[in-house]
Amino acid sequence: MKKPTRTLIASSVAAALGVALLLGGAGSLAFWSDSSTSTPQTISSGTLDLGSTSEVKIGATPTIKNCTSPTSCSASGAYSGGPLVPGDVVTATVSIPVTLIGQNMKARFSVAPTKTAGAVNTTATEADTALASAMTITIKKVEQTNFAGVADAAQSVILSSTAKRDIPVTVDVSFPWGATAGQYNDAMGGKVSLGATYTLEQIPA
């Protein structure tokens, strides 16, 4: 066999052996290894929830006072639910159950007052319509946040993650005294249905 031929054969054998060693090492021989599987970690999604209508409750006894101007009012007393007259301001606190669960959970809690002339599911009379027009609902306070008090305007606060708890919302229901005698005479004997829509909306943390 000529030298170049021997050299070529020797090189081929060496290369083949090298490949075999490399392959074998990768499989089981060249280094140690071990493996284990961790206990599964369960990730839960959070919760954003407003209580149902039945859970919404009126807090401490509503109070009533009579004001001929913003700075001239009678002393407050317990409101027993009787008919309102011009100047009356009824203050009530409603508790809204809220649940916000999640480390980065933040939400805007909004309260939008609503009023409808007449009793629920009845045709409004002229007095009902006049009363609904005259009366105002003002959100005064949501939890610890006080508001300047814009009549019939929605208000909102930002809430952070919390287990289920009640958010107190304080509202004033006002029947204005009027600028002139008899201004609201057409609202005598009227009925109005007052309510509110509560919204909880997630915002970026």
Partner: peptide, 9 residues
């Protein structure tokens, strides 16, 4: 959620 309307007279 909506609060049940309260009737005022």
């Amino acid at each position: 959620t909506e609060q049940t309307p309260q009737q005022i007279e």
